[in-house]
């Protein structure tokens, strides 16, 4: 698997320089994502999950260890990556279509203006935003803005889609809509995805593999292969099997937060 892995993070250590001295955030992190796979990364808050996205995007370089994309070491940003964040950061002065076009204005390509527009229309239709192409971002709801942000991340057909808690600020029903849209996008577009999230149900519903990070400085605490196929239904989350998986993940997060050890020590006393 390691030779075929599209994203490879090997023994990565990283610390930020602060006024109070170095603050280690990643300590011996190993993550591998095979081509076409969907991996979710969960962990206690502030454990360095966002640092991970910046390492893969080539916006930050680790103090120690190596990050590979398509077998090549990441030494600068590579335009085979698409990113979406919790804040959709749409450009308010552009129409929705022009927002989605943005990556194709920057990444070198041989598409004509019409082909670029068609790509935008195609993506917006996939996420149910047809008819909103000429609207301004301020005229859209939070969920719709996030959908447009996903389209923008995919406009240049990136190999790797990095999602940093994109659904965290949405209400529960909108979030479930977007989970289903993610599944549809995966059927239509070929990408490998790394999703950072706090939501265990989200990770189990969307991902093939869930990686639990330990508390800061983070290392890989636990990896879970989600035993569901590609076609998933929200009802799958309410089966005993899913409940068992979620309980398992929840336990691992508590271990990561070192809460479990303390409880055991309490009992020992």
């Amino acid at each position: 698997m390691s030779s075929k892995a599209l994203i490879e993070i090997k023994n990565v250590k990283h610390a930020y320089q602060t006024d109070a001295g170095p603050l280690p955030v990643l300590d011996g992190l190993n993550v591998e994502v095979a081509k076409g796979d969907f991996t979710a990364v969960v962990g206690p808050s502030g454990c360095g999950k966002s640092t991970l996205t910046r390492l893969i995007a080539g916006l930050l370089f680790p103090n120690e260890g190596k990050v590979f994309l398509q077998g090549k070491r990441v030494t600068s940003p590579r335009n085979i990556v698409g990113m979406a964040f919790q804040n959709p950061v749409l450009l308010e002065w552009r129409s929705i279509l022009d927002n989605v076009r943005l990556p194709l204005e920057i990444v070198p390509n041989e598409l004509s203006r019409k082909q670029i527009d068609d790509r935008g229309y195609e993506l917006l239709a996939m996420v149910g935003l047809e008819g909103f192409e000429d609207k301004r971002p301020s005229e859209l709801s939070g969920g719709m803005r996030q959908r447009a942000s996903l389209c923008r991340a995919l406009a240049h057909r990136p190999e790797v889609l990095i999602l940093d808690e994109p659904f965290a600020a949405l209400d529960a029903f909108t979030r479930e809509d977007l989970w289903q849209i993610m599944h549809e996008l995966r059927h239509q577009e070929a990408f490998t995805c790394l999703l950072i999230t706090h939501d265990l149900r989200e990770s189990v519903f969307l991902a093939d593999q869930v990686v639990v990070l330990s508390d800061r400085p983070a290392k890989t605490q636990y990896t879970l292969d989600v035993p569901f196929g590609r076609d998933r239904d929200l009802d799958d989350l309410y089966t005993p099997e899913a409940t068992e998986i979620l309980r398992d993940l929840r336990y691992q997060i508590q271990v990561a937060q070192k809460r479990v050890d303390e409880e055991i020590q309490e009992i020992d006393k």
Binding site: P77, V81, M83, F85, V89, I106, H156
Partner: peptide, 14 residues
């Protein structure tokens, strides 16, 4: 300027 704006463009090689 929110850092995400910068990150999105930088990651594309802008």
């Amino acid at each position: 300027l929110e850092p995400e704006y910068r990150d999105i463009l930088l990651s594309l090689g802008a």
